[in-house]
Write a protein that binds this DNA or RNA. Structure first.
Lengths: 246, 246
DNA sequence: ATATGTGAAGACGTTCACAGCA
DNA sequence: TGCTGTGAACGTCTTCACATAT
């Protein structure tokens, strides 16, 4: 049961599916797409192995082998019956499907703790994503150096940066109150995908993808689960033991 | 040599559903639970308003009114037909459902950039989550002060901290290689919910919830979307214009 | 009159089980 | 024989449309 999403404010666009990947021409179902990065990551971690069965790979990814096979078959037949999958071939196919042959420039909005952390160490540089700009609304911070070769730039430069670098992915790491306006500016500048760390519901035009990452939400979901679990202990039929059941 | 054999982390637990909320006694469907934090957040942001219709609230949350009503009805009848929902009542009902009447202690493992950022500013303190411990594997850092009233503690103290504070939620902010072992230790200590920032697939016993938050994954999904979008422009039937459609 | 709450229908996602290929 | 690839069965989630309550 994957995924989380959200958004809104008076809806001025049509039906709006948040992550209705299939907006146009993808043969890959949305739910499958959500798992591809995991498969790729696991495959990248496999060294000294050149073949894997769906059973083995599925175990490493915590999915069923049937699901893995169905997911992979959506990208074409990259396996060999009776044998399994060639690790390198599969890895390449996944990387291609995800569009990772080339690097993706990314622009970050918000120079707070999170924004800075992202622009520096995080998994950005690691996997083909390059931060090409870091902007902040606080004029006083313009010019402040960040990491190796970045400098905080004013919001006014946002559109210019996006256009010059042909960047299509933006990260919002601002306070929630500013998030919607930033999203609007990113979209206006040509961004088609937004990674939103602000705890706010964003409304964007059809065709723009938004991935929400909110700590508060995640913790609340865990709290919910913990509470359910506790309740279950006093409700469940036959309070046999403290075990987990299978 | 083929196959994974020796490498594989043979799964020792049963089927394992990643976020099978309904493990035991919840009347709330899993997909609904995922949206509750959003509803709550939006309601908390509503001031100077004491009534709201499903239509209005749904627009603010970017869901359909039908979905909102169905979701809310899973928690009982908190609305009034012909009128709408009382904001305060609904807010309280949601907070109760999510288990937010009381604070939740949280333990953080990993004192890197992310771990420190989390322990300090992030949305933790804000919404009823209190960091009661921050442990790190690097012994040299033991004792290092963090924020107001935290100090980095050694891994060996993890179980003690969890038990003393009756903490059931843990955060993993370690390098991926250490994640599984940390998860095992957390589970052994009594944790039932894990927020995992490490790009690794965790295997946990049935009944323990894991929420993965991985930057790389999110960016890859956005890249995938961007690529699909680009492809669509050259594939879509009748390349009429560059617009988004309604 | 108006907006909630909910069965029923439909869309979507997962699992099963086996046909097909190496 | 062994494992992939996939139609068909099954289950879950969403949407529809209206009965129901104020």
């Amino acid at each position: 049961m994957p995924s989380i999403t959200a958004t809104a404010r008076v809806r001025q666009f049509a039906p709006v599916r948040r992550w209705g990947v299939n907006a146009a021409a993808s043969r890959v179902p949305g739910s499958t797409a959500l798992r591809l990065p995991v498969y790729l990551r696991v495959l990248q971690g496999m060294r000294d192995v050149d073949r894997v069965s769906s059973e083995e790979l599925a175990a490493l990814c915590n999915v069923t082998s049937a699901q893995l096979r169905k997911d992979l078959s959506a990208l074409g037949s990259h396996g060999t019956r009776g044998v399994g999958y060639d690790v390198r071939t599969l890895r390449d196919a996944l990387a291609t499907e995800l569009g990772l042959q080339h690097d993706w420039p990314v622009v970050v909005v918000g120079g707070g703790n999170l924004g800075l952390a992202l622009a520096n160490d995080a998994g950005f540089a690691s996997r083909g994503f390059r931060v090409v700009g870091l902007v902040d609304a606080d004029m006083l911070r313009t010019g402040e150096p960040v990491g190796r070769d970045l400098v905080i730039q004013p919001m006014a430069d946002l559109a210019r940066i996006v256009r010059r670098t042909r960047c299509v992915i933006g990260v919002i790491a601002t306070p929630p109150a500013a998030a919607q306006q930033v999203a609007d500016e990113l979209v206006a500048a040509g961004i088609t995908g937004i990674l939103n760390f602000a705890p706010a519901v964003l409304t964007v035009p059809e065709g723009v993808a938004v991935r929400d990452v909110d700590l508060g939400t995640e913790l609340q979901l865990l709290a919910f689960h913990a509470q359910q679990r506790t309740n279950a202990r006093f409700v469940g039929e036959g309070s046999t033991d403290g075990g987990e059941d299978a």
